[in-house]
Design a protein around this nucleic acid. Sequence first.
DNA 1: CTTACTGTTTTATAAAATGCATACAGACTT
DNA 2: AAGTCTGTATGCATTTTATAAAACAGTAAG
Lengths: 133, 133
Amino acid sequence: MHTDLQKVLDRLILEANGVPIYVQLRDQFLSAIGEGRLKPGEQMPTMRQVAVALKVDLNTVRHAYSDLERHGAIVILRAKGTYVADVPPKTDPHDRDHQIEERALRAIADARTHGVDPGDVARRILKMTKKGG
Amino acid sequence: MHTDLQKVLDRLILEANGVPIYVQLRDQFLSAIGEGRLKPGEQMPTMRQVAVALKVDLNTVRHAYSDLERHGAIVILRAKGTYVADVPPKTDPHDRDHQIEERALRAIADARTHGVDPGDVARRILKMTKKGG
DNA sequence: CTTACTGTTTTATAAAATGCATACAGACTT
DNA sequence: AAGTCTGTATGCATTTTATAAAACAGTAAG
């Protein structure tokens, strides 16, 4: 289904936060695969699709995909496409929880340094991501 | 107390995952501040202390600290040291709401770029700030 | 075969990140 | 004044990141 692929593409976000682009791509694909949004055997977006969609260089996408292949998350087939590995590495619930914790801590620090209640920010996040996000 | 500082230093870990060192340092200090391990007004580890402890360049640590200062999380005082920023005074309800919106947007982007659900982060924030945070 | 799609590679360029060494400058203690 | 702590700054070398443009190579469908 191409619609699923489009959904994955739409959720890709790049932030100018110092993290290399290829790392951001790699981690977001890893999460998509680990959470099952990209299923085993399913075709990944082509490198060019990602490059065009996010306006980044083809080699940058390739860098991310190469990392994913080394990680065992995807299989790259020359001239045919890239596919999610039949047995993709599952995201360790521990790591996932740790990531949530880290993001929460960072958001709390960010809220406090700007003089607002972290709880208010949390409730706003929920409101924004209910339907419109 | 110096023991607290040592604890913060001991928790600093650098990983070879493609993320620049200064970004890892910056984010871990943000987490420490968000967690309350580093409290407002408290002195931060010296740039040289961090550089020596983690065997990285002094300018790399400086890069991280500069980011934190621009972020408003710390205050750098030449020749005296760096300190965790005091919480800013609350502002008008108008600006306050705008700030909440900004922090929420940032947190959502931060969560997505790290492959986690913003809603999960929001719920974690609420849980952490209920009693323990 | 031709076309159109895949991933692969090369060349060039530029910017950023890191390390290492060496200083400079302000503040405090003695 | 001297010493020692702080952050600040510079110069040089190296590696990594990112872009651009162009080409190369394998696969499949017309």
